[in-house]
Design a binder for these strands. Sequence first.
RNA 1: AGCGGGGUGGGGUAGCACGGAUAUCCCGACGGGCUCAUAACCCGUAGAUCCAUGGUUCAAAUCCAUGCCCCGCUACCA
Length: 670
Amino acid sequence: MVSGSDMHGTPITVKAEAEGVAPEALAKRFNAQHIQDLRALHIDFGAPGQPYGPWGLFTSTATPNHASTAQDIFRVLLKKGHIGKRSMRAPYDPKAKRFLPDRYVEGTCPHCAFPDARGDQCDNCGKTLDPQELKNPRSKLSGAAPEYRDTEHYFLQLPHFQAQLQAWSEAQAAKVPWRSNTINFTRNWLTEGLKERAITRDIAYGVRLPPEVEQHDPQFADKRIYVWFEAVIGYLSAAKEWSQRQGQPDEWQRWWLDPHARHFYFLGKDNIPFHTIIWPAMILGYAEGTGQPYQLPYDVPANEFMNFSGSKLSKSRGNLITVQDITQRFQADAVRYYLASNMPDTRDADFAWEEFVRKTNEELVAALGNFGHRTLTFAHKQWGQVPDPRKHRPSGDEAQKLEESYLKPIRAELAAVTRHLDACRFKDGMKGVMQVAMHANRMFNDLQPWKTLKVDPDRCARDIHECLRVAKTLSLAMAPFLPQAAEQLWHQLGEPGSVHAQPWPDDVATIAAGQALREPRVLFAKIDPDTVKDLLEPGEPKMTQPHAPAQPAAPPMTPSPTPDRITLAEFQRVQLRVGVVRSVEPHPKADKLYVLKVDIGGEERQLVAGLRAHVTPEELLGRHVVVVANLEPANLRGVESQGMLLAAELDGKVVPLTTQGDIGPGAKVR
RNA sequence: AGCGGGGUGGGGUAGCACGGAUAUCCCGACGGGCUCAUAACCCGUAGAUCCAUGGUUCAAAUCCAUGCCCCGCUACCA
């Protein structure tokens, strides 16, 4: 299992820019956070708490190994003609002596005459722009007028692979089979027809081109491989890094060049085409160029999205749970149980605190935890060791009943879990494990060991022995889902070593009579519903952080400059008036906007306001609101707005400003 | 508005790509049992016009059409 942090993603560049920090530093921080999160959730790679171990590696795309692997693929694809160079015209800043990304060109919008439109899009009228359309363009960096120069870039020739990808994806989807979302997204792309895509950019942050390319064509020293080309290569480079660290530098070949190796890629649905089109195209070209049988993905089980209380996770809406937040408050296994049994396998799922508590208390604790605990405490109290079943001579009927009613269904359920895991149906797998626990509870109940103990201790010993076998089986079966509890149970059963070093069970386990049991302890803690009460308040930030030190590694992000002051005269240039809302109409062409008619004292203004998500028309009609009266008019999706309605905003909540007592429209606000 | 996902007993869900007869599972409610166990476990009962309407069919939760509603992405938030 390999994974890692993408260090060159666009969000990183954008955020680093916003915070005024170096992108490398920010990426490093994210990577450290990812590693910490994995640890907190007990996702380990073979060495507890470490991002590296005998089973795998969590690395990043900032390593020299990754760069050279990416360059090698680039090189091979180039040689094979799957990457081509061609020139395109792009804005260039003669003062800063560099090409400018679209958004670094500013100028006057050709559509609405807004003077500060960006090259990719105008913030005023919202139209998507080409930097060349801007009037009076200037560079954001130096203010100089950009020139248009030809710049050369490399393009990945995806069309070369269209037919191959089509055949491969259909075959694979039918054979594996792929999930419907995976094949659907893929088909969409293929039927649209693949187009060549630029894989270099005029930027300074990212993976460099191969040295010989830079030497041969020095301009490419100032360009970088664009992230979407290079990030997916991380799968291969991580495998190589892992082999290196294992001291077996060629070990990765067993995983990449053996036709029997099956590659599974786990991702969110928004990432599907990268893993079913682009990356496979690169692999095909690379395999062709190297003559090595690099393996294409076997399965790409993409998850849908998990929302939070009905809408998407969003920091600004106070709709956010971080791994840190939740693992600080609750057992990682409880979190894992909830996520596994509520996984967005085939459709979007929802995270709800009430459900989380319910599932933990009523399912995890009550069924799974309880069986382990009741069995262990009983056995431990009576014998302190695994009792010997052999003194009991069961009748034929009795033995058959044990087998038919209890062991057989458990075995069947176990086989079902195995099938589900093979097919990447983790939700079903988790449910199957729960079913085993339910069978187990039934078995314990029916056998009534607390009664037989008094009348037939040998029989009781045999029955508890059977229950302990089932408990051991459960420990093995729950290991991938609930690693910590599984290990605890394993230990309490007196088993040596780690449950995680055991092979997957294909039958009810056996357990050695006479094996010493350890002091039983509860496997899962119940959650007091009050704990999440304060997390449920609507509109409030869901996760305050009383004990969460915000990002320990993070230095203060923005130096706080002295606040900008304005003079009274400056403030007085803004004319604020009280207005009465006379009518509220939805904007005909925009979902978030209202068109309001507001009486500001003898004059009716038409305003466009982005309040539709926050306030109903009824709440607005007749209200006294505060309006900026001398704002220059603007055109919003075809409707003129003659002013601006003031509103207060906090964490995504928006409330229009109103006056407390009634005062006539037109009243000045000072 | 464009594109994607979805609407199944009180809550959460499975089934839907390949229509089939009593619609799955967990929880809750109600009734009973048990007392080894974290008031946990076990058994039973009730509870669903499978969003609506129309269509295809011997047969539709499942296929087709239209509509309504929810969620996400994108645009719009003066």
